[in-house]
């Protein structure tokens, strides 16, 4: 993972989450996974294209997803209805979008694809041998893992 890419993703995640979900955002230490990983229950995938190819995966438990959606909508949501799904999808869009804007300012040409949301147990995500950087984030609503895998062309 090219070092210039690291900060925009980390910073945008923190900025977006702290302004939309909770001001108590705690980032834990970044780490690398050799491959894509098992998912926690609710997963949003945003593709990256342009001078590179890759994807951003935002992963959380069902409970965390509901709590985040509840906070963002300022009402108590209890099941995965359309509102919850589109809220979480939008959150992923905001995080990735901001990072990509930032990278464009630094001179890297990136585009993002529309996010896709998956809900289910025992999902495994596998990428074609791309090393993944994981940004673990602790929120009062629960834990998020943002995995970023980028392959240079």
């Amino acid at each position: 993972m090219r070092v210039e890419y690291v900060n925009p993703f980390v910073e945008s995640a923190i900025q977006v989450l702290s302004s939309t979900v909770s001001e108590y955002v705690k980032r834990e230490e970044l780490f690398l996974r050799p491959k894509m990983c098992p998912a926690m229950g609710v997963t949003v995938i945003v593709g990256l294209a342009g001078q590179i190819s890759g994807r951003v995966i935002i992963d959380m438990s069902r409970e965390t997803g509901l709590k985040i959606a509840s906070t963002m909508n300022d009402e108590t949501l209890t099941e995965y209805d359309e509102l919850v799904v589109s809220t979480i999808t939008e959150l992923a869009n905001m995080i990735t979008g901001k990072a990509v804007t930032w990278l464009t300012e630094l001179g890297f040409q990136f585009d993002i694809t529309p996010p896709a949301l998956f809900i289910g147990d025992n999902i495994q995500i596998s990428g074609n041998n791309v090393e993944v950087m994981v940004v673990p984030i602790e929120l009062p609503q629960g834990r998020l893992e943002i995995s970023i895998g980028i392959k240079e062309k």
Binding site: V3, E4, P34, N129
Partner: peptide, 15 residues
């Protein structure tokens, strides 16, 4: 020079 955040356990991923 392409600087990379990488932990050397996944050298195979370089194409």
């Amino acid at each position: 020079i392409y600087f990379e955040f990488h932990n050397a356990t996944n050298i195979e991923s370089y194409n």
